[in-house]
Computed example of a mutant assay.
Amino acid sequence: MHQRQGQILQLLTRQEQVSVSELSSLLGVSEVTVRGDLDQLGRAGLLRRTRGGAARPLEGEQALEESSKQYAAAKRRIGRAAAALIQNGETIFLDVGSTITEVARHLSPALQGVTVVTSGLNIALELERLPNVQVMVTGGTLRRLQHSLVNPYASDLISRIRADRLFLGCNGVHPQHGVTNANHEEAEIKAQMVRNSKVVVVLADHSKIGAVSRAHITALANVHTLITNQHAHRPLSEYAAEIPQVLSV
């Protein structure tokens, strides 16, 4: 599937838009298959679905407040399940994004001695309500629409910390192509967090399962747990060979 989706994206670099029937003829697959590919690429932000086909994505980036509205119930369930994994005394990395924000919202007030390191300004503000959680912000350069901090300088603090767990957001989780993200600057920070964490927990709603985005973060071999919801487009058994724990909530 990845090769076929790559052909679709390559075609959209040469022309503004493309129809389902055109792609079906060009790729030698059914229109149902093409629509499935377009839906998946659209959810990953790599193209824009149109009536009867697809077009290049609009310039600019979707604000966090907008992405939070997509699959909101699923993201809440995933965030709640992830937050339940955190234990007293741990040092954790909380990445950025709408699903990771749900982890911060579901952290228990009963936690003691937990240190949270985050590159998300909105996540740091969410954690102000927890008096027994120490919050560290990475610093760096602000990406306004995502309220996230990136290089230069963001990696400096991360490189000095060895976290017990990382809760990692993404735009795609693929059996062969690993964990990917739509933004290269954020992917750089995410990859640094992976390298400095004992346990990596990937959070991805069903629209991310099987998708491949622009910037590589890490291979599935480095992921210890995947938490998703129950409507994944690909069988979760495809991930079991590489990821020890796959949870569907």
Score class of each variant (00 low, 15 high):
residue 5 Q to A: 05
residue 198 K to Y: 06
residue 166 L to W: 00
residue 149 L to W: 04
residue 22 E to W: 13
residue 102 E to M: 12
residue 49 R to Q: 13
residue 191 A to Q: 13
residue 77 R to D: 13
residue 141 T to I: 05
residue 65 E to R: 13
residue 190 K to M: 15
residue 194 V to K: 00
residue 7 Q to C: 07
residue 3 Q to R: 10
residue 198 K to M: 03
residue 98 S to Q: 04
residue 244 P to E: 01
residue 160 R to V: 01
residue 103 V to F: 03
residue 142 L to F: 08
residue 169 G to T: 07
residue 166 L to S: 00
residue 47 L to M: 07
residue 73 A to E: 15
residue 176 Q to E: 15
residue 223 V to R: 05
residue 224 H to A: 13
residue 85 L to Y: 00
residue 225 T to V: 15
residue 121 L to Y: 08
residue 183 N to A: 10
residue 32 V to L: 04
residue 49 R to V: 11
residue 233 H to G: 00
residue 13 T to Y: 05
residue 133 V to P: 00
residue 198 K to V: 10
residue 94 L to W: 00
residue 29 V to G: 01
residue 81 A to N: 02
residue 118 T to Y: 07
residue 136 M to C: 06
residue 70 Q to W: 13
residue 92 I to Q: 11
residue 31 E to D: 08
residue 90 E to A: 07
residue 248 S to W: 00
residue 155 S to M: 07
residue 178 G to Y: 07
residue 39 D to V: 13
residue 138 T to C: 10
residue 85 L to C: 11
residue 119 S to N: 15
residue 120 G to I: 12
residue 244 P to M: 03
residue 221 A to V: 04
residue 19 S to L: 10
residue 31 E to T: 12
residue 171 N to K: 06
residue 48 R to M: 11
residue 46 L to G: 04
residue 236 L to W: 02
residue 80 R to N: 03
residue 139 G to V: 09
residue 151 N to E: 15
residue 126 E to K: 10
residue 203 L to P: 05
residue 197 S to I: 07
residue 146 Q to R: 06
residue 141 T to K: 11
residue 14 R to N: 14
residue 210 G to Q: 03
residue 31 E to L: 02
residue 131 P to Y: 04
residue 78 I to R: 03
residue 28 G to F: 09
residue 132 N to C: 11
residue 230 Q to N: 14
residue 96 V to C: 14
residue 224 H to S: 15
residue 145 L to S: 15
residue 200 V to P: 00
residue 105 R to E: 08
residue 231 H to F: 11
residue 94 L to R: 04
residue 91 T to D: 08
residue 47 L to F: 04
residue 195 R to C: 13
residue 64 L to Y: 06
residue 181 N to P: 14
residue 240 A to P: 01
residue 193 M to E: 08
residue 200 V to W: 03
residue 134 Q to P: 04
residue 234 R to L: 15
residue 240 A to W: 09
residue 207 S to T: 14
residue 102 E to W: 06
residue 123 I to D: 04
residue 25 S to T: 06
residue 16 E to F: 07
residue 9 L to N: 02
residue 243 I to G: 01
residue 2 H to G: 11
residue 130 L to W: 12
residue 55 A to H: 09
residue 167 F to L: 13
residue 165 R to S: 07
residue 29 V to M: 03
residue 225 T to G: 00
residue 48 R to V: 11
residue 126 E to A: 12
residue 229 N to M: 01
residue 238 E to P: 00
residue 91 T to W: 04
residue 132 N to V: 02
residue 51 R to G: 08
residue 138 T to Y: 09
residue 177 H to R: 11
residue 167 F to C: 06
residue 121 L to K: 09
residue 71 Y to N: 14
residue 217 I to W: 05
residue 84 A to K: 09
residue 230 Q to I: 01
residue 245 Q to E: 15
